[in-house]
């Protein structure tokens, strides 16, 4: 654990009768992009508010570089955060929004210009922020998080409202920040947004952590030892593989999923029986699948359909 770590331990929080956090515990370490995923209502935003000292936890603690956020004299130098990109005064220009934030930390207007260039907001700097698109507001919020050049960065749903180009940019940007040794914590309710970017995943549901592991392990766990077999003769193929000890499920007209049989053995069985197949490969679950698998029980607000 270092000065850049965001650490959450045993957080509990109730709002009236509703339990928002029920023992939330995880760590976002340096040099990694930690994805913080979970369905709406899982407690992601509440956790982040507690980290920032905006809400008080009923139990547990949240530390930024081993210190409670509210004890920090110039907090933006320790942790840059974006909670709600729309939290702006609409009449204030983006530049002035950053300026007051910078001044509150004893920073000058030069730093404001720098971060605006970093996020590509230079041209819109002097326009009222009320006229910004959601994507521009996200960039402004990220610029604000970077003002203090902090070793830890925490972003709540930063991909919301971004165009595809913006999403690509932000992924690269966050990876680069992590590569500089910073701790980057990014929340999302869509696993697909984190795919290819996050090194580590914290999956939350109903106020606690459901899974906390590296992305590769998570996918392997979700994939299991399954084989995908594509063939035009599914009936004899099914029979042959079942005879060899595999459990076969027909997934599509010409697609079978096989468990309990290593790939080389399956190839040998089919080759010996002279059965044709166009594809035979270990099944690799998508992150999305893995996530849906994990959170199936934890979704509070499932779509009515």
């Amino acid at each position: 654990m270092t000065d850049t770590t965001i650490e959450v331990a045993g957080l509990r929080k109730r709002y009236g009768p509703a339990t928002a956090l029920d023992g939330m515990t995880f760590t976002a370490g340096p040099g990694l992009v930690t994805g913080f995923v979970g369905p709406n209502g899982a407690g992601k935003s509440t956790t982040m508010r507690i980290v920032l000292g905006l809400h008080a936890a009923d139990a547990g603690q949240a530390l930024v570089g081993r210190r409670p956020y509210r004890s920090l004299a110039r907090p933006l130098m320790h942790l840059g955060a974006l909670l709600d990109a729309s939290a702006l005064h609409p009449a204030r220009s983006g530049r002035n929004h950053l300026l007051w934030l910078a001044q509150s930390q004893g920073l000058g207007s030069r730093r404001v210009g720098e971060v605006m260039e970093m996020v590509g907001l230079g041209p819109a700097a002097r326009r009222p922020a009320g006229g910004y698109s959601l994507g521009m507001r996200q960039r402004l919020g990220i610029a604000a998080a970077l003002l203090g050049d902090p070793p830890a960065i925490m972003l709540d749903e930063p991909f919301n409202g971004m165009d595809p180009e913006g999403v690509v940019w932000l992924r690269g940007f966050l990876r680069a920040l992590a590569a500089e040794g910073r701790s980057v914590l990014v929340s999302s309710h869509l696993m697909s947004e984190l795919q290819g970017m996050a090194d580590h995943l914290v999956v939350a549901g109903r106020g606690r952590v459901i899974a906390d592991s590296g992305v590769a392990e998570l996918i392997a766990a979700a994939s299991g030892d399954r084989l995908r077999v594509r063939t035009g003769r599914s009936a004899p193929v099914t029979a042959a593989l079942a005879a060899a000890g595999g459990q076969v499920v027909q997934e599509g007209e010409d697609l079978l999923v096989v468990r309990g049989l290593p790939a080389d053995q399956a190839v040998a069985v089919l080759t010996a029986a002279a059965l044709p197949f166009s594809e035979l490969a270990p099944h690799r679950a998508s992150l999305e699948e893995a996530y849906l698998e994990l959170t199936r029980d934890a979704v509070d607000y499932r779509a009515a359909s």
Binding site: R70, A81, L83, A87, L88
Partner: peptide, 14 residues
């Protein structure tokens, strides 16, 4: 109303 209070108090924890 604008949610700006969170930014205000996040940059000024005192």
């Amino acid at each position: 109303r604008y949610g700006l209070i969170r930014s205000t108090l996040a940059v000024g924890p005192h």
